[in-house]
Simulated scan of single mutants.
Amino acid sequence: METLQTDLVVIGAGVVGLAVARELALAGQEVIVLEQGAQFGEGISSRNSEVIHGGIYYPAGSLKARFCLEGRELLYGYCQTHPVAHRQTGKWIIASHDRQRGPLERVYDSAAANGVALEVAEGEALCRALPGVQAVAGLYSPRTGIISSHELMVSLLGELESAGGQLVCRAPVIAVTSDEGGHTLTVGGEMPCRLACKRVVNAAGLGATPLAGNWQGYDPGFCPPAWYARGVYFSYSGRHPFDTLVYPVPEPGGLGVHLTLDLAGQARFGPDVEWIPAPDVTVDPGRRQAFVDSIKQWWPALEPDRLQPAYAGIRPKLAGPEAGFVDFLIQDESDHGVPGLVHLFGIESPGLTSCLAIARHVKSLMA
């Protein structure tokens, strides 16, 4: 089998992998991105809410808080200078009854600790802002928005290639060996080969943990466990009264069944949270009734027959349903002792919002 040489390999061509590869290529590195799928962005990056998050929910000082806040501003700036469709829609977080006031106050405190200003509304002011919504109190996040993740990835890939980088699809990484001489990747697919490099970034999304668990020369004791939380989305056909996003207060494992908008203005609801043993993006139409029951708590005018199964995404969790908050896990040589190796684990929400900030961080680790 032929062995090819390059400077740096990024494994995974989702939005984070492409952002990292672009950042390193623009810094003058010779970069090859290996993607097991037929094209870029077929995994987590194409199965999310496409929301630019405000940086509200995460503990102050965490990587999620830091990268979400930095990434949000980088992303808005990027969209203004590149052909990436987006809109700053704003978002309401609501308490639909008095029992949720406490959790809503905790959201406000968390946002304040992160330096995120939220507007508070009750009574008539809230009714004017969200007509038809049943809520006793709400918090408004003006810097939340939506983005075309596909257009973002197309733009990142274009800049990567303009800087001399290369994307190779249908190129699954079967095995990796790391030693004093660098890293050797065994690549399968249509043109199997070995690829030798000095540095490698594991940005394989759902596959990052399984790949690291079989990585020769990397102590498996540093590899976190893999948990999977499926989130299902239902689209809402026809007209609706919303021009902003609406979230109930968070629930364990996620942010609750919320309303988001696509760039054409169509409403969709989700994701819910379902813990599963292995990645599976099947959408069970039977989950619709649970959606109806949840949504009607705050939007009584919902017409259930207009809810249609849309798609499902998988969150790559690093701990199970009882664990509470778990941060991104980004490992480099200072953690595991392997020179030139960075693992990106548990890059779930707000990974899309954070992608450009994560890329800058990885570049600093590779410096």
Rank of each mutant, 00 (worst) to 15 (best):
F242M: 13
D179V: 06
R194F: 05
S178Y: 01
C197Q: 06
K198H: 14
Q216V: 11
Y218D: 00
T177G: 02
E190A: 15
M191W: 11
G165E: 07
V176Y: 01
R230F: 03
A226C: 12
V232A: 15
V246G: 11
D243V: 15
G254Q: 06
M191P: 02
D219F: 00
L255K: 12
N214A: 11
A229R: 09
Y236T: 11
T244N: 06
Y236E: 02
E161T: 11
D243E: 15
N202G: 04
C169D: 05
E251H: 06
P225E: 08
K198T: 13
D179H: 05
P250F: 11
R199I: 11
A175G: 02
T186N: 01
A203P: 04
G256H: 04
G164S: 03
L206C: 03
V173G: 05
G217C: 00
F242I: 12
F222A: 06
A203Q: 06
T209R: 14
T186K: 13
T184W: 08
D219E: 06
R239F: 15
A203F: 04
S237W: 14
P172N: 06
G213M: 10
R170E: 05
R170S: 09
E190D: 13
G188H: 02
Y228E: 08
G231A: 09
L160H: 03
V232Y: 13
P248N: 13
G221F: 08
G158I: 07
V257C: 03
F222W: 05
V201L: 15
F234Y: 07
E251W: 06
F242S: 11
L185Y: 03
C197S: 06
S178R: 00
L195W: 01
Y218W: 14
R170T: 04
T184L: 11
P225K: 13
D219W: 00
V246E: 09
R194L: 07
